[in-house]
Design a protein around this nucleic acid. Structure first.
Lengths: 139, 139
DNA sequence: CTAGGTGCAAACTCTTTGCAGCTGA
DNA sequence: TCAGCTGCAAAGAGTTTGCACCTAG
């Protein structure tokens, strides 16, 4: 059983995830990224470090890391998944409609309200997704 | 320029949307549905009323109705869009992880908090997506 | 040594599009 | 009438998979 949020090689190995050259390259890309890259971007960047990485391996590795709790999958725009390391505390996303920039934020109050609403409906929340889409306020 | 939330034939016609046999069938399906159907489901149900409806027309009509503000597109599970008529007030979704059921809810407090958070980050929200994924609380 | 990982290319799913004929207003 | 809509089939984008070879542990 995997505990949440493993991202060091040794933790992953302890989970039975074999650490290969390709997986190291992909982990490296995720650690360096601060832009929620797509599979395609991850492939391109991983290849800078290790030419041999293939598309199939990127997808398979992302699936493995997602299951291990190392990686989070986002579907901001409906056109392809975007990934991030699950190495910080939980946060939601604000997407800038003009630039595509993704800003992370966290609100304990919203989280609390979500739990309250779910409780009123007779549910326990397992996870949630909150995305705000907006534009910079004019000065 | 389309005003939000048109869903009667006359309103749509006034927007320049031609009302065809196929579009009537699709609108009928959307009015009867209470389960956020996929394009595939909409096609199957529309064909019960009008055999001639094609997949291409379903997708094209959904795009037209979405632009007219008649239809909302959801991407709950990453595997294909799910649609609903935009005929009620804004709401968010709670997805039952065991049954797949989609429960609609609305919280003015959460909406307000979202606007506050965006304002703090210097943004005006255009739209947002909030989905809660959970299971029924055991008795 | 060998269970599991890999590259390649083909397959798959969902959605969009080009085209020639049809039809609502 | 005729701009816009339609069905069909092919194309696209993003992702997954079968297979034979490779490699971490």
């Amino acid at each position: 059983m995997s505990s949440p949020t493993q991202y060091s090689e040794s933790e992953l190995r302890a989970e039975g995830v074999r650490i290969t050259r390709q997986r190291l390259a992909i982990l490296h890309v995720l650690r360096e990224a601060n832009d929620h890259p797509r599979a395609e971007d991850i492939l391109a960047r991983a290849r800078l470090q290790d030419q041999s990485v293939s598309q199939a391996t990127v997808y398979r590795t992302l699936a493995v890391l997602e299951k291990a709790g190392t990686v989070l999958r986002n579907e901001f725009d409906g056109t392809g998944a975007r990934f991030e390391l699950a190495d910080r505390t939980h946060h939601d996303h604000l997407i800038d409609l003009d630039t595509g920039a993704v800003i992370e934020f966290h609100s304990a109050r919203i989280e609390r309200l979500q739990a309250e609403i779910a409780a009123e409906l007779g549910y326990d929340i397992e996870w949630h997704r909150l995305e705000l889409y907006g534009r910079k306020t004019p000065d």
